[in-house]
Design a protein around this nucleic acid. Sequence first.
RNA 1: GCCGAGGUAGGGUAGUGGUUAUCCUGAGGGACUGUGGAUCCCUCGACCCGAGUUCAAGUCUCGGCCCCGGCCCCA
Length: 411
Amino acid sequence: MIERPRGTRDFLPAEMKRRRCVERKMRESVERWGYEEIKTPTFEHLDLFTLKSGEDIVDEIYSFEDKGRRKLALRPELTAPVIRFYVNELQNEPKPLRFYYFDDCFRYERPQKGRFREFWQFGIELIGGRRDLANFEMIALSVDILRNIGLGKFDLHVGDVSLLKKAVSSQRDDLDEEKERKIFRLMDKKDEEGLKTYLAEIGIDAENLSFLMSTLDPIEEAKRIFGDIDEIKQLSTLLDLLSAYEIYPKIDLSIARGLDYYTGIVFEIYAEEGLGAQRQICGGGEYDLIKLFGGREERSRGFAFGFDRIMEVLEIEKEEENMIMVISTDDCRREGIKVARKLRKKFKVELDVMGRSLKSQLSYANSSGIKKVVIVGRREVEKNFYTLKDMNNGEQISCGEEDLLEMIANL
RNA sequence: GCCGAGGUAGGGUAGUGGUUAUCCUGAGGGACUGUGGAUCCCUCGACCCGAGUUCAAGUCUCGGCCCCGGCCCCA
């Protein structure tokens, strides 16, 4: 027997209904803000991703060589492909550009709760725009989506990596990249003890950086240290605009995220429960990929939802299935087929393919949750009528050909 | 890659070295040739894979695979 590859999943019809329902709501949400769907290839040149994230990520990517010796990779995320697309052929479009995507991504990682080797991302990229207004739109939209899909409980954290970088690099002139990274990582993990120990080790006064981890009013504290610099104004304006949309994020200046390409505001959204160690359901921010990919400098920003993680925490009530079954026995199959065809103009209709008796077909309808059946048997065919049966209460009525559609709708 | 817990019909399970591997559910058929849900009967269907120990392995040992929780990483 052939097993499903590690970290992949099969989805049953019931689960696909849930997923499509949420997907539909997400699409509706972003389309109401003027976003349009785009699609990029499932695989790209490996370089696209190493350029963005460094050589190290090759370990976590599904990469391969094709028969023409090209080094390719299944996309591990969608921001880089979308920006590549933009740089390739959309740079002269009028700004802003509002794009959204919903697709599967692939990462070679150890699977655990909320983490798979094939997983789905729903995200947007907003290219162009003045920083404060565009950042407002990005974050407000992400919250709008969650509100629309009915996910009420989440934590929104907003930070600014440029402030973080500035604060850390101002501590020592000779701070190399590796040390900075380690500091960022400890901060991102909120490992205060580890951070203190490490800062002491490399001779930095932890007090100077403590405002980044502060939970009280980090903006005020940053202002005290840096003065009223542009980064702080941006954050304040953003908070003001968000409050107009009734969004009150938690400021967290220690968010480091991928860091390599984020350049300004960053944000993360966490589910409150149900995901174990993988609580993050959304991440995004401002980045500078366009120039890196050889385009004309243009600010852009975006976010992506971990669709599968959202599905883990979201509770959705089941939609009732509205299936009609046309039941006919072997001597009347032709008539049954004709009736089914007529009904399919307006309804979902099933026909028996098992060759079952009338009794067994009813039994099947019952156990499949089919609420309405039309019986087309010899008796009906000979006298030229149909029998409609309501499976909920067992009541039956007869009707002629001309009122079939109407009567079954009202059954 | 690391640490830990697991893997018995489609789903849920019993089974501490010894009959033909238990029970529930499910699925297919029938009792019942034009009327479902109840009942009864029949049928289908499993020890993750591979080595080893043993007279004998679902059970013990080792390796692999998969899965679950966590670490690392997280574009």
